[in-house]
Amino acid sequence: MDALKSAGRALIRSPSLAKQSWGGGGRHRKLPENWTDTRETLLEGMLFSLKYLGMTLVEQPKGEELSAAAIKRIVATAKASGKKLQKVTLKVSPRGIILTDNLTNQLIENVSIYRISYCTADKMHDKVFAYIAQSQHNQSLECHAFLCTKRKMAQAVTLTVAQAFKVAFEFWQVSKEEKEKRDKASQEGGDVLGARQDCTPPLKSLVATGNLLDLEETAKAPLSTVSANTTNMDEVPRPQALSGSSVVWELDDGLDEAFSRLAQSRTNPQVLDTGLTAQDMHYAQCLSPVDWDKPDSSGTEQDDLFSF
């Protein structure tokens, strides 16, 4: 819950932080000083300027060897085509990944977070970031790969997607708890209302004896509580940590079903599988986004697919 609360507080303090972009060759504004600060901008989305290598189908939802083989196929196909790589912007948030063309600003792909089953910074092609997700059109699994400016960037994108998945799962947990509370309150309110109706004398007997209905007592009954809980029953509950912020979080049926399955089948359902080692994760978390744009010590960066 700490990640969720800190993310909400950060967004309320400075929503404009989320509009910064990394990996864009110096076009961005001043960047936060450390990885923790940038992680807090996830709610509205972190932007990464990358190059799209392509996509291939895979048979399993996750796995280092599986993704490595898929990336190898994608890279080989991209090299064989001889075409310049498409420059894209990857927007990562707890909602998922939005992929747009840098030149036309046209939407290429919009992947809900619950469809993503794996992401990684490839070991062999260490400047490549990739994720595996279920197609929104059918049940097939797709591996999408992107060329980053350097290994640090690939690791940073991988960690960002993993963190977005974690925050999304926490949102789901909060929403589920809130819905259970509202359902319980609604049920209790309905029981109270039913009890009051059972003990209320029939209207005919009131008229016969000349008694008047006590409207004041009726007004004191917990009807307002019942209506408050039943009027918006169809509205999706939102985490309290975000009250007053500009973010509107809505959970669709697909996300609810997917996270429910994860909660039942996995020990740590909030953790998205990645190909990063503990050492890689520690190294990337210690980086400032400013470091992502620094040239690798191995030599001059080449803006070309064939540089790796």
Score class of each variant (00 low, 15 high):
Gln173Leu: 02
Thr230Trp: 04
Leu223Asn: 15
Asp191Ile: 03
Leu305Asp: 08
Met233Glu: 03
Gly23Ala: 09
Asp303Cys: 03
Phe48Trp: 08
Tyr283Met: 12
Tyr52Met: 02
Cys148His: 03
Gly189Ile: 08
Arg115Asp: 05
Lys84Arg: 14
Gln240Leu: 11
Val75Ala: 06
Glu216Ala: 09
Ser81Arg: 07
Ile98Phe: 12
Ala3Gly: 13
Pro239Arg: 00
Lys87Ser: 10
Glu33Met: 07
Asp293Ile: 00
Ile108His: 01
Ser49His: 07
Lys19Val: 14
Asp198Thr: 07
Gln240Ser: 09
Leu43Asp: 10
Gln240His: 04
Gly23Ser: 02
Gln139Met: 15
Glu180Gly: 14
Gln20Thr: 15
Pro222Arg: 10
Val111Asp: 13
Trp292Arg: 12
Thr89Arg: 10
Glu216Arg: 09
Glu178Met: 03
Arg196Ser: 13
Pro94His: 04
Ala10Ile: 02
Leu11Thr: 11
Ala154Cys: 04
Ser307Thr: 03
Ala78Phe: 06
Ser16Pro: 09
Val236Lys: 07
Pro222Met: 12
Trp249Phe: 01
Glu188Thr: 05
Phe306Ser: 09
Leu99Phe: 03
Lys294Arg: 00
Gly63Ala: 14
Asp2Thr: 05
Ser205Glu: 08
Lys5Val: 09
Ala219Met: 01
Leu11Asn: 15
Leu215Asn: 15
Lys176Trp: 13
Gln20His: 05
Tyr283His: 04
Glu33Trp: 14
Glu170Arg: 09
Asp291Arg: 14
Thr225His: 09
Leu262Trp: 03
Thr149Tyr: 04
Thr104Phe: 07
Gly275Leu: 01
Gln285Lys: 01
Thr120Gln: 05
Gly96Tyr: 08
Arg266Gln: 05
Val236Ala: 12
Pro239Gly: 04
Gly299Ile: 01
Ser67Trp: 15
Gly23Gln: 04
Leu99Lys: 05
Asn34Trp: 13
Gln155Cys: 11
Leu272Thr: 00
Leu206Ala: 09
Leu99Gln: 15
Arg27Asp: 11
Phe129Gly: 15
Ala162Thr: 13
Asn138Val: 15
Asp296His: 12
Gln285Glu: 15
Val207Met: 03
Arg73Glu: 10
Asp2Trp: 05
Ala18Leu: 03
Gly275Trp: 06
Ala168Ile: 04
Ala168Thr: 06
Met46Trp: 05
Ser246Gly: 07
Val174Gly: 07
Ser112Arg: 00
His125Gln: 08
Gln60Trp: 12
Ser186Cys: 10
Leu305Cys: 08
Phe259Ile: 02
Glu217Ala: 06
Trp292Ala: 00
His282Gln: 03
Asp304Arg: 15
Ser21Val: 07
Pro32Asn: 14
Ala221Val: 08
Gly45Thr: 13
Asp37His: 10
Gln86Ile: 08
Asp304Glu: 15
Val161Phe: 09
Val75Met: 12
Ala70Ser: 05
Lys19Gly: 15
Lys127Leu: 11
Ala69Met: 03
Asn110Glu: 11
Cys286Tyr: 14
Leu4Glu: 02
Asp304His: 00
Pro222Asn: 02
Tyr52Gln: 00
Gln136Lys: 11
Ala156Thr: 02
Leu66Pro: 15
